[in-house]
Each structure stands twice: as C-alpha cells, then as structure tokens.
Simulated scan of single mutants.
Amino acid sequence: MPELHQLLMFIAAGWLLNLTPGPDVLYIVTNALRSGTRAGIVAGLGITAGCFVHIFAAAVGVGALLATSATAFTVLKWIGAAYLMWMGMRMLLSKPGADGGNTAALAAAQAAPAPHTPLRKVFLGGFWTNVLNPKVAIFFLAFVPQFIAPGTDNKALAFVLLGVLFNINAIPVNMGWALAASWMARRATAIQRGMHWLDRVAGAMFIGFGLKLAFTDQPAA
C-alpha cells in the first residue's frame, strides 16, 4: 500500500474526479430531479456497483486486454455507445405529463408523490451505464497503478484494495449530487415547471456521450 501522503493524494484525486460531470453524474442528477433523493442515491449505488465490476475485472487482466486488444475494446465500446444513445433516445421521446406546468398539480405531487421509476430499474440503469463504458476500465488501469509501490508483492491485491477505496470514497460524492439535485427540485419553481424538459436535455447529452464514446480511439498500450 502507498505511504500516508500518497494515500491522501489518491483520495483527494478520486474526489476531484468524481465531482467532474459525466454520464454517471448526469444519471444521478436526472433521477434525483425526477423522482427524489432516494432515486438519486439508488442511481449512485448502481453506478458504484458497476465500478466494482471494472475494479475486479481490471485486477485480473480484463483491463489490460481492453488496452491491448483493438477487437475487445471496439466491441465493448460500441455496446456502451449504443446503450447510452438508446437511453438518450428514450429520454428525448418521452412525453410530458398531461398537467405539464400546472402549479397546483405540482404542489399535489409534492404532497403525495406520483409513482416513480422503480428503484430496482434505477439501480440497474446506473449499473449498466457504468459497466458498459470501457473508458472506466481504462481509467482504473491507468490511474490506480500509479499509487502502487514498485516493490509490492501482490500487486493485484493492492489494485483491488485501492480500487475499493476509490469506489467507497465516491459514494458520499454521488449522494451529494443526489441531495443537491433533489434540493433544487423542491425549491426552484422554474425547475419544477420545466421538469418535462429535463429528459430532453439529459437525452441529448446522453446521445452526445454515446457519440463521443463511439469515436473514442483505443488508448495506446
């Protein structure tokens, strides 16, 4: 394991990286705004579960395979891009509720929330959003080894421990995004009235993330 100052640097870098907006943050915020804090937190937990897949896969060499095999990287890249664009199209084509900007209806919805997306579905959506992004595997493969001492006997175990630490540290950041989004949804009337546009904006961004992923070149080995 790294020395204390390196460990603190690793934690700080992880927090900064998790604060950077991307597909994962967008997914958390979208669900928190639309369905409340619990949905946002569950979305974050789904993303965390997806990260664990990348951590353990990278530790046993799948990450290295993606970095060196053009075929493996391309297959997972296109699956991930297709999934992001599919989610984006669903959001773009979703229809707003019949009450639209009716303030009374919004107030009633706050008092007695309408049925939301099932939490299991929210969790699985976050999980697959993360798992099907090969850039996450490449990130772990490139970032974590920098904090493993060259003389470490069991580098795979050190990789897993650091990856788990990174993932656990991401949980409060993800919860923070969910809480912030939910707070805005409860207090900002303009956001509430324009809620049906959120899916359009988020959908367009997901399609953009998917296109960006589709045109991502395989990192040099």
Rank of each mutant, 00 (worst) to 15 (best):
P2F: 03
P2Q: 04
F10C: 06
A13W: 05
L17R: 10
L17I: 13
P21V: 02
G22K: 06
P23V: 04
D24F: 01
V29T: 07
R34L: 12
R34G: 08
C51M: 12
V53A: 04
H54K: 01
A57H: 08
A58V: 14
A59Y: 00
G61T: 03
A64E: 15
F73K: 00
V75W: 08
M85G: 08
P96S: 09
G97T: 15
A98P: 14
G100V: 14
G101P: 13
G101I: 13
T103S: 11
A105W: 06
A108C: 07
A114V: 09
P118T: 01
R120L: 14
K121G: 10
L132D: 04
L132M: 04
N133K: 06
K135V: 08
L141A: 10
F143R: 00
F143I: 00
Q146F: 02
F147S: 00
A149S: 15
D153I: 13
D153Q: 15
A156E: 12
A156W: 08
F159T: 03
L161Y: 02
N167C: 06
P172K: 09
N174Y: 00
A178P: 05
A180S: 11
A185K: 06
R186F: 10
I191P: 12
Q192F: 05
G194L: 14
H196T: 10
L198I: 13
D199M: 09
L211M: 14
P219L: 07
